[in-house]
Write a protein that binds this DNA or RNA. Structure first.
Lengths: 160, 160
DNA sequence: GCCACATGTAACAAACAAAGTTACAAAATT
DNA sequence: AATTTTGTAACTTTGTTTGTTACATGTGGC
């Protein structure tokens, strides 16, 4: 199955938009995500409609956060993306009259609903500020770790 | 995204294999699932390797259960299918050096792992016998319900 | 032994959704 | 007016499940 990476990507972008540059064009963001500016606009468009980011056209234009990281949960972003399907497994509807199929699907649905509730609950709890704090922690730990292998020189290197 | 319906389909087949016919050819099963016999063989092959079903060639051959419904959990079937991906969302790996991406992916992974643990736990708890019991219950309730709408005449109609 | 039946499997085609691309319109700044 | 940048439609590519075709292998009945 082909996975939807938009949630992950949007978290990535929004945190960069707070930590590294308050303003970035689709082009710059696309470079960061190693993708195409149109993909960036298309995906960020959903977040704009939800009031999470704002965009400006023309010279000096681009994208910026419309709220603080502490005011954006993963749930907000998931919703802004149109609540894409969470699961790669699902019910077959091969014979809608069959009562065996109904019983089977009911059992699977019940489990999926529980898992979905758990995920929505977790997503609603986690803010971008939480993830940014984890990033800050990694930033402090990383060079110490990396110097042992001789990979990094600058203490403030972030990776992208 | 395109969902994997094999788990649902296999539950469906195995319960029919207990409740309605102890023996069925790929052709007959394919008709029930409204699909192709080769798809049936391909999918049931995994269950055979796991010892859940047995197959016989030639005249009077076909598929049958190798264990009782009470000895088969949803988890067993999920495993027999090769543990296909559960989630339709996942982490982007656009810039493996970026510490922001690492922090983001760590947060998402953590949630997905919790959800996966919950699902595996539920699947391990539910046996095919449980679902078959639910089917039996629906079989009793269904005609009463349906007669109000004039859809069914026979009390023992199962649907497929 | 031969034939019909059934599984076993490889190889390929179709279907579908996310991601990527191209093209151009619209708006804002210089 | 020229340039930059977003906005969006239309199309292509890609990856995965499902479906199909073709044929080999094994089994039982006559």
């Amino acid at each position: 199955m082909r996975q939807d990476h938009r949630l992950s990507r949007m978290l990535h972008v929004l945190i960069h938009l707070d930590r590294h540059r308050k303003h970035a064009t689709s082009e710059e963001i696309a470079e960061m995500l190693r993708t195409n500016p149109v993909v960036v606009r298309r995906t960020l468009a959903g977040l704009r409609k939800a009031g999470l980011v704002a965009s400006e056209k023309g010279h000096g234009g681009g994208w910026r956060l419309a709220r603080g990281l502490g005011e954006i949960t993963l749930r907000d972003i998931y919703t802004a993306l149109g609540e894409p399907p969470l699961f790669a497994i699902g019910n077959a509807q091969d014979n809608p009259v069959c009562l065996v199929e109904k019983a089977v699907n009911s059992a699977i649905d019940h489990t999926l609903e529980q898992a979905q509730a758990l995920m929505m609950d977790r997503f609603a709890t986690i803010t971008l500020a939480d993830i940014a704090a984890d990033f800050d922690k990694r930033l402090l730990d990383y060079p110490v770790e990396a110097r042992r292998f001789g990979h990094v020189r600058d203490h403030d290197k972030t990776g992208s």
